[in-house]
């Protein structure tokens, strides 16, 4: 896969290019890490601050969680790189099947 070549033993790789790529990667990591900390703080704040009903807080925190998962997958687990088409296809298919199931269970089953 494309991301495994960053420190290959091949002497012909362009060190300058690699270094620049790594620096850019590092910047993405730091930015998304900061954002994830920030989102976590917001989630805690939503519960700590009085005045929001549970009907707002629960979906709100779930939404933040989804955003964090996307950050995790794309910036830390390299799904933004090339060569991850098959894993992303299976991830999204799985999400779709799961979502349809949840939708059905919450709408057409009598509880």
């Amino acid at each position: 896969m494309a991301n495994s070549q960053l420190n290959s033993g091949n002497p012909r790789v362009d060190i300058e290019y690699r270094r620049k790529k790594s620096a850019e990667e590092m910047r993405h990591h730091v930015v998304s890490f900061a954002l994830m900390i920030f989102l976590t703080l917001i989630a805690f704040a939503a519960v700590a601050i009085k005045g929001f009903s549970a009907w707002f807080i629960v979906p709100f925190i779930l939404l933040l969680a989804v955003v964090q998962v996307i950050f995790q997958l794309y910036y830390f687990m390299h799904m933004s790189h090339k060569g991850h088409e098959a894993p992303s296809m299976f991830l999204y298919s799985g999400v779709l099947v799961g979502a349809v199931t949840i939708l059905a269970f919450s709408t057409i089953i009598w509880w």
Partner: peptide, 12 residues
Amino acid sequence: GNTVIWEHLFWI
């Protein structure tokens, strides 16, 4: 409980 849950799980 609800027996229809089994039917859904089984047919999914």
